[in-house]
Each structure stands twice: as C-alpha cells, then as structure tokens.
Write a protein that binds this DNA or RNA. Structure first.
Length: 192
DNA sequence: CGCTTTTGACCCGCGC
DNA sequence: GCGCGGGTCAAAAGCG
C-alpha cells in the first residue's frame, strides 16, 4: 500500500540532520530544467536562481506508476517510453563533503554503481525506498575535486519524509523552490 | 527476519 | 551492424 499521500507535500526541510562531521557547504546548486521543452544540451548546467526553480507542473510520479510500475519485474516491458513523462525535475547539488551520503530525511536504496569514464570515481545510484515514491538520486564525486560530491536528484517525493525534521537551519536558502509539486500554498494548478 | 547492500549482467540509445 | 556509454535490475550476501 502506498504511504498516505499527503495532500500537503510541503516539505520545507531539505537538509535534515547534517552530521557535524560532514560539512554541508553548498557551493553551488544547479537546476536542470527539462521536461517541458528541454533546451539543447548546450547548457548542461544552468545555474538558476532559487526563484527560477519553479518549473512547470510536474506530477510525474504517483500518477503513472502508482500501481503500474510497482513490481514491473519484466525488464522487457516498455518502461515509460516517454522519458519526459517521468523525469520532470532534475537538480544537481555540489557539496563539499567527505561523505557522499547526505541524509536528506529520506531513505535511499542503492541500486547500482557505475564508474564514469571521465572520472576515476564510481557513480552511485540511489532510489527512494518509499512506497510509490520513485525518486532517484545519483551521487558521484567531482572528477576535478574529489573532495566535492555532486548529488543529482531526479523526481519529486510524493510523500512526506519518513523523518520530518523540525530544524530548519537553512533560512537563507529558498527551500520553497524544492517543492515544485504544484501546490505550495494555493494549489491552483492541477485540478483547477 | 527483513532489509540493504554488492557485483554482474543486461538493455537502451546513440554514434560511427 | 557494432561499439561505447550509461542506466537499471536481479540474485545473493551481510547486517541490524
């Protein structure tokens, strides 16, 4: 069964409990805006501001696979051919930390590891282990700065974090941008 | 006991 | 048509 879908995906707490050892120094956060039109690959990294974060309504998960893809054991079956159908949000974070395991409050299940040809470091693939939540996370070390970790998030959680943190130690940032679930406070989109 | 992790194999898309 | 690169899944093992 699916987690009780919270009609209020207002998870304004991203950086949950940061380990005192891990230096959560957000040097730069890149936002890949694609899914609507998707510009050319000329701009692989668009450094957008927090305000520009708001992408088009992307209700990717929870709509198509919630009950369809859950358990698709047949690898041959056509997984969403429409890559844009599912991937509607991509965010990359560059963090200077020795540990790549950043606890964002969600549970991630590592499902694969691959080495990048351009990097001597392997790339780890994580997936949200929450029911119905197929958010994917990709973490890899910067090939130029092994001390930096690049975490790329794919998708949006459609459920509250298993461990809601009440410590919002990031008032400077605009966490609101994270919640492009199409319903931050006015829920105007979606079912009009 | 359940769940997560680990490695390999497999598949897909694209390029040449 | 084949090769390369990348991505994902799957079975087994390890750990709490």
């Amino acid at each position: 069964m699916n987690y009780n879908e919270n009609p209020n995906p207002n998870w304004t707490h991203f950086p949950a409990n940061i380990d005192p050892l891990a230096e959560f120094e957000l040097s730069d956060y890149l936002a890949f805006d694609d899914g609507v039109d998707q510009f050319n690959s000329l701009s692989p990294q668009s450094l957008v501001s927090s305000e520009n974060f708001a992408a088009g309504g992307t209700r990717a998960a929870s709509s198509t696979e919630t009950g369809n893809m859950s358990g698709a054991t047949s690898r041959n079956t056509n997984m969403q051919k429409n890559k844009m159908d599912q991937v509607g949000h991509r965010v990359a974070f560059r963090t200077k930390s020795e540990l790549e395991v950043m606890d964002d409050g969600f549970k991630w299940r590592k499902y694969g590891k691959k080495s990048v040809k351009n990097s001597p470091n392997p790339r780890n693939y994580y997936k949200c282990s929450s029911g119905g939540c197929n958010v994917k996370k990709r973490v890899e070390r910067d090939r130029d700065d092994s001390s930096y970790v690049i975490t790329t998030y794919d998708g949006v959680h459609n459920h509250e974090s298993p461990s809601v943190v009440y410590y919002n130690k990031m008032p400077l940032m605009a966490p609101n941008a994270w919640n492009l679930q199409a319903s931050s406070h006015s829920h105007s989109s979606s079912s009009s």
